[in-house]
C-alpha cells in the first residue's frame, strides 16, 4: 500500500486509480484501518453535519498529504509527529481564521469541526503511512481516496441515524409525510445517542465482510 510509485507512471495508471478505489472498500479507513472513529461518532447524529465533515476531510487530507509529501525529505524522523501535527493544525487554523473574518456565518457552522479535524487520526494516519513515503501526486490521490472512503461511511451512518432517530432526512420530515406516526410509529431516540453510531458501524462492518469474505478476521 505504501510502496513507492514509479515515476514514469501515467497520471491515472491502474496503480494510481487503486489509490482512490481501495480505501472505498477493501482498505476503508473506518471499517478496516480503524482511523477517525471519534469524529465519526461526534457528527453522525444528523446527515447534514456528516456531509460537511466528509467534505472538510476531503479538502484537508488532500491538501495536507501533498504538503507532507513535498516536505518528506526534510523532516527528521525523530520530530516527524510534531511536524505533521503542526502542518495540519496551522492549515486548519488559518482556514478557520479567514472564515471568521470573511464568512462569519459559514465559520459558525464549521467551528465545531475545526477541533475534530485537527485531532482526526485519519489525517495523521495517512501522513504517516503514505505522505511521508510518496510523491505529491500519488499522495494527493491517496488523501482524496481515503477521505472519500471515510466520508461514505459517515454519510451512511448519518443517514440511518437521522432517519431512524429523528424521522427526518436532511431536516425533511420523511416519516411524517408518509403518515407513519398516525399509525403508531415512534422515533427511536436511542439512535441519536453516540453508542448507536458504534453499533451502526459494527453492522456496516458485518455487511461489508459478508460480501468481501477475504476481510474476515481470525478471532
Amino acid at each position: 500500500m505504501s510502496a513507492e510509485v514509479k515515476e514514469k507512471d501515467p497520471l491515472f495508471s491502474l496503480k494510481n486509480r487503486k489509490l482512490i478505489s481501495a480505501p472505498l472498500n477493501k482498505d476503508n479507513p473506518i471499517t478496516i484501518q480503524v482511523l477517525g472513529i471519534c469524529s465519526a461518532l461526534a457528527v453522525t447524529a444528523k446527515l447534514e453535519p456528516s456531509v460537511v465533515m466528509a467534505l472538510s476531510v476531503v479538502f484537508v487530507l488532500g491538501v495536507g498529504n501533498v504538503l507532507i509529501s513535498l516536505l518528506r525529505k526534510t523532516i527528521p524522523p525523530r520530530i516527524r509527529i510534531i511536524v505533521q501535527l503542526t502542518v495540519i493544525a496551522t492549515l486548519v487554523i488559518l482556514v478557520d481564521q479567514f472564515l471568521k473574518a470573511f464568512a462569519y456565518d459559514v465559520s459558525k457552522q464549521l467551528s465545531v469541526f475545526v477541533g475534530l479535524i485537527i485531532t482526526n487520526c485519519i489525517i495523521m494516519g495517512r501522513f504517516e503511512a503514505f505522505g511521508m513515503a510518496n510523491k505529491p501526486w500519488p499522495s494527493f490521490l491517496d488523501g482524496i481516496g481515503n477521505a472519500l472512503g471515510y466520508g461514505w461511511i459517515l454519510i451512511v451512518v448519518g443517514f440511518l441515524r437521522e432517519l431512524l432517530g429523528s424521522g427526518t432526512v436532511w431536516g425533511y420530515p420523511v416519516f411524517e409525510k408518509f403518515g407513519l406516526y398516525s399509525v403508531g410509529y415512534e422515533n427511536n431516540g436511542m439512535m441519536i445517542l453516540p453508542p448507536m453510531a458504534l453499533i451502526v458501524v459494527g453492522v456496516i462492518i458485518w455487511v461489508q465482510r459478508t460480501k468481501v469474505r477475504e476481510l474476515i478476521e481470525e478471532n
Partner: peptide, 12 residues
Amino acid sequence: FSHDKETPGLGA
C-alpha cells in the same frame, strides 16, 4: 441561544 462547538444534531 447559540454555542461554539456543541455536538451537531444533539446539543447543537
